[in-house]
Design a protein around this nucleic acid. Structure first.
Lengths: 232, 232
DNA sequence: TAAGGCATAATGTATAGACATATTGAACGC
DNA sequence: GCGTTCAATATGTCTATACATTATGCCTTA
């Protein structure tokens, strides 16, 4: 048996999603719901609070509780870790390191990550799904934020996968764009020059500190970002 | 002043994110936290419950409460409504209808949406940011699920924006990919043939019923999906 | 009539106590 | 030794109550 507060919550949520309760409609007062379901006010409150936090309802003192206007501005999708995604669909994953250097920040991009003269790790590599190159990656790691990274062998291990497990991130910014493969990218991904590529640029923070910056270029004909989202 | 339960919650969350509490570590028992913060058990519980739901901690009867292993598999991003996004960055939005037909489903794609012989609305159009065409859209709407759509004038209004406000969706599936513009797309978006485009394919459900299918093709040089995500 | 004050009614937060439920670990019996 | 039982313990849920907070709308007053 589900807890009472969850039954009430599910009940109200269902009424909203089905359209029985429309945006702007007032939901019964807490004391009315108490009588209706035969529970205490704390239980009603525990049912309504998550609906408020999820943005489905709005609660105003003295006035009551109302169904919110639907949020127009977003849907949500997952961007999985490449390694995880490849193994999840039953293919074997392999990372191949192409280049690896450690030096002091001296470009704008590097200074933005690690500050002027900060120590950074720059590496490029390829992600393979079975025998096929799926993505080219160029990654910068702020070694002041993640000093352990200097001791890890990335010739086989994906740096992104390692970082996700070791460094707890608090903020991520993704940019997804499309570009046409130039010569070097085409060679790496074994596609024709002029083919379409899907590009993910990702910047990661831990609290205030920048952790890593990565550009991942996917073969547009072989890769799609697939995302499902269930409301509620 | 923040509520007590939130202070406690923030405090514990901070300890986890900073690394002071590591995965597997036991968090003090509720009765210990009661003494530590000088609050009742309900308040402690109200602080811990959201951390549990967010997946940061795991609670086991008799054993106690523990810091969870970090989830490796996903990060989350928003895909905004085009119209909302354009107006949000201060440009004027315009939708231009290119074609509009209503007929019975007769292709595989149409049958998948509305069933065999179901009534569907098919339209194509362009989204403009100020004077520039930003995206080409081809949309199928299941008129059995959204009969009102037949009465709406889409010559100026974006069908996606209208649908979002009118039809509460429960499930969305997005596919993001990259392609090279062929002749017609290039002409519509006023870009060179062979330029890169970002493509979003979206399918929307309301409960079990399919609502709409849309393919949006963006000028890859002018558009990026930008997504930020804050942990917790 | 308009500005301001005030009682009222709703949600917001917190307490103490009760019983339910699940799991651990020790005591017990074979 | 090994499995079983059982009490202890921590979380899960719910109640009844109390006081805080805030916006409403009436009522008073200039």
């Amino acid at each position: 048996m589900k807890p009472l507060h969850q039954q009430i919550r599910d009940d109200i949520e269902q009424q909203i999603r089905s359209g029985a309760l429309k945006p702007g409609d007032r939901i019964p007062f807490e004391h009315e719901l108490m009588a209706q379901y035969g529970v205490s006010r704390m239980t009603v409150n525990k049912a309504l609070t998550p609906l408020d936090e999820a943005g489905l309802i709005e609660r105003r003192k003295r006035a009551g509780t109302f169904v919110r206007l639907p949020r127009l501005d977003s849907t949500v999708l997952d961007i999985p870790d490449i390694q995880h995604e490849i193994t999840a669909r039953g293919e074997t994953y392999r990372f191949e390191l192409l280049s690896y250097t450690i030096h002091k920040a001296n470009s704008d991009e590097e200074r933005e990550l690690a500050g002027d003269g900060g120590k950074i790790l720059v590496l490029t590599g390829l992600h393979f799904a079975s025998a096929k190159p799926l993505a080219f990656e160029r990654r910068l790691v702020n070694l002041d934020a993640v000093p352990e990274a200097e001791t890890i062998d990335f010739t086989r291990q994906s740096p992104g996968h390692w970082l996700l497990g070791v460094v707890p991130w608090t903020h991520v910014e993704n940019q997804i764009s499309a570009m046409v493969a130039e010569a070097q990218t085409a060679r790496h991904l074994r596609i024709d020059k002029g083919g379409a590529c899907l590009v993910v640029d990702r910047r990661t923070w831990r609290e205030k500190a920048r952790v890593t910056t990565v550009k991942q270029i996917f073969d547009g004909s072989a890769y799609r970002l697939i995302a499902r989202f269930d409301h509620g």
